[in-house]
């Protein structure tokens, strides 16, 4: 009985001290409210946790319409250019000056498709996010417009800077060049499954890739001449030029100078078959 009383009393006093402490902290204005200083790690994790769970729960089971269509992506891009780019930027283009210094930083949407389902993206765009500076774009816009923006955001996941510029030009001049591919490509991933990652690993060793790159599973000299290839699948760009997509990776391994004329990565005369095998191994490197 006595011990129970003591426990309750100590809990109450701890609560009292914490309460008083918090009040003093808030009252004196000690919280670092400057947007230029990052959140500390605990705050940051708490916000991310809250945000992820709330979006997941509240977006529920919205089922998106067919999004991978030229018409939707074209219209979505027009809206994106006017409404979203100022904060989220675009391939090769920074966010506008107005949004520099925002806290939290508006994330680039190049990988949004990998983090959120189409339904969730639609919900976020429609409703916006409290405490993140994300406005509810749905205001004054039809549901179709919102889906069109989602369609373009998903396409951005596969766009290189050059492709993006070509699309932008087509929109500004109201043209439709036949060589422009509006829909997201999907066939590279399907083809990649036909090649052996195990043989790819051996080839990476034989071509001496590890003399410049550190590659998990391949003995490396650690020269740091090229970037490390850990978790390669999660990397977004190849040489900052093209999107890390199987067809592009194969082209890069065979003819790096075609993708980036200034690169120090040598053309090792890799055959197409070998390039696909090496890509199969590299694309298997994920977290």
């Amino acid at each position: 009985m006595k011990t129970r009383f003591a426990i309750i009393l100590s809990l109450l006093s701890v609560g009292f001290v914490v309460g008083i402490g918090t009040t003093i902290f808030l009252e004196l204005g000690l919280y670092d409210i400057s947007a230029l200083s990052p959140h500390n790690e605990i705050e940051r994790r708490l916000i991310m946790f809250l945000k992820n769970n709330a979006i997941e729960y509240q977006s529920g089971d919205i089922s998106p319409p067919q999004l991978n269509s030229k018409k939707r992506i074209r219209n979505g891009m027009k809206l994106y250019e006017v409404q979203c780019k100022i904060c989220h930027g675009a391939p090769g283009e920074p966010r506008g000056r107005v949004s520099t210094g925002l806290n939290p930083n508006p994330p680039p949407l190049l990988k949004a498709d990998e983090h959120w389902s189409s339904g969730q993206l639609g919900w976020i765009i429609q409703n916006g996010l409290k405490m993140a500076g994300m406005p509810g774009v749905g205001i004054g816009q039809t549901q179709e417009d919102v889906w069109n923006i989602v369609a373009f955001v998903k396409r951005m996941n596969t766009l290189s800077v050059k492709e993006y510029r070509a699309m932008k030009k087509a929109i500004q001049q109201d043209e439709d060049p036949p060589e422009l591919r509006w829909e997201s490509p999907e066939e590279g991933w399907i083809r990649l499954k036909e090649y052996s990652a195990k043989e790819g690993k051996l080839l990476l060793k034989q071509y001496g890739c590890a003399s410049c790159h550190s590659i998990p599973g391949v003995k490396t000299l650690n020269t740091h001449a090229g970037p490390g290839l850990q978790e390669w699948k999660d990397r977004h760009f190849i040489a900052g030029q093209v999107v890390n997509y199987p067809n592009n990776l194969v082209r890069w391994l065979m003819h790096p100078e075609e993708i980036d004329s200034t690169t120090l990565m040598p053309n090792l005369g890799v055959s197409e078959e070998d390039a696909w095998k090496m890509s199969a191994y590299l694309m298997g490197l994920e977290e």
Binding site: L36, H115, P227, Q230, R235
Partner: peptide, 27 residues
Amino acid sequence: RLTFSYGCAVCHTIRGVRDYPGNIGPS
């Protein structure tokens, strides 16, 4: 602080500055 404010860490993994998503450019 500038590295944070310019949003460098939204694309790059940087020790001491964490941001989201952080894996668009090289680490």
